[in-house]
């Protein structure tokens, strides 16, 4: 593209311009990373150090003390991580199953109103989420799901975006003949899904799992609406509760934030390419 003019002699200014552009991209990258860096730096310093001027720029040795302080302030911290992880895992498992099932039907089976139903599913994506905030609280209060993990898992068990992703993937990789071959081989409709379709859509399941897991693990608003008791708080709520109006213990808070971010950070380091591709694939086609 632009760069393939290499063979031509460049004007002298072009090199400087290019250097400036590189500088800006890297400066931007630093801006993206700095908050993370200071999160880890603060996690290793005592509160007094953090509050001093100038603040610490390099790692300290107060990590374990901060951790102890965090545990003293929020004894249910580890439990809340487990809680968040298990809710995310349950949501992910249900989404994989239901979205793949629906995506398969929309991609491979012929039935009346198929396009209409699929259009309806896409249309629900346009509903702004705040419209359902108040109604959700009301509903959860009425059916007694306040403070229950069900309130976070069940409503999001089959996301519209997941169905869309699965349909796109299945219709692009699975030949229809394969489904027919399974029918000839005396497979029932559900058996076809279980034994032929599911084993073949691993990559899409992986991407959907990443997206769903991250979304659920990070879900703050949903938890805020339905979880009221400290004992059942998910991780974001526990972190939020550390934030007092005055006298915030920044060291303890930072180690908490760091621990909260780490699982996804690790996941992202391994799967960033796949996640980014998965998230944008729908956008480019749609």
């Amino acid at each position: 593209m632009y760069s393939s003019r290499k063979t031509k002699r460049r004007p002298a200014g072009a090199f400087t311009l290019k250097l400036i552009a590189y500088g800006i991209v890297f400066a931007g990258a630093v801006v993206m990373l700095l908050p993370f860096y200071f999160m880890f730096v603060f996690a290793t310093h005592a509160n007094a150090d953090i509050l001093s001027v100038p603040p610490p720029y390099w790692f300290g040795d107060h990590l374990l003390e901060n951790l102890k302080q965090l545990m003293a302030m929020r004894p249910n911290f580890w439990k809340s991580i487990g809680w968040s992880l298990s809710i995310a895992a349950a949501t992910t498992a249900l989404n994989l199953f239901f979205c793949a099932l629906a995506g398969y039907a929309f991609a491979m089976l012929d039935f009346r109103y198929r396009e209409t139903l699929f259009g309806l599913i896409l249309a629900t994506l346009l509903l702004p989420s705040f419209v359902s905030m108040i109604p959700t609280i009301l509903l959860m209060q009425q059916i007694g799901w306040i403070n229950s993990s069900k309130a976070l898992i069940i409503p999001g068990a089959c996301g519209a975006l997941g169905i869309f992703m699965m349909r796109q993937y299945i219709s692009s990789v699975l030949p229809r003949d394969l489904v027919d071959a399974a029918r000839m081989d005396a497979c029932g409709e559900f058996d076809i899904f279980l034994r032929v379709v599911l084993p073949l859509i691993g990559p899409a399941l992986g991407t959907l799992a990443l997206i769903t897991f991250i979304g659920s693990y990070n879900n703050f608003v949903g938890a805020l609406l339905v979880l009221r008791d400290q004992e059942v708080y998910t991780l974001p709520l526990v972190l939020r509760s550390l934030q007092g109006t005055n006298g915030v213990t920044w060291g303890a808070l930072s180690i908490g934030a760091a621990i909260a971010v780490l699982p996804l950070l690790a996941l992202f380091v391994v799967y960033s390419r796949r996640l980014i591709d998965g998230l944008t694939a729908g956008a480019v086609k749609g």
Binding site: A29, M32, F38, I50, Q243, A257, L265, F268
Partner: peptide, 28 residues
């Protein structure tokens, strides 16, 4: 990946860090 990282990070966790960074007295 670096530019994308903020998008997948837990909002609460990182926003709390921002609060510290934006502090007037000791803020980075």
């Amino acid at each position: 990946a670096i530019y994308f990282l903020p998008f997948i990070t837990q909002t609460v966790a990182i926003v709390l860090v921002f609060q510290a960074l934006f502090s007037a007295k000791f803020g980075v």
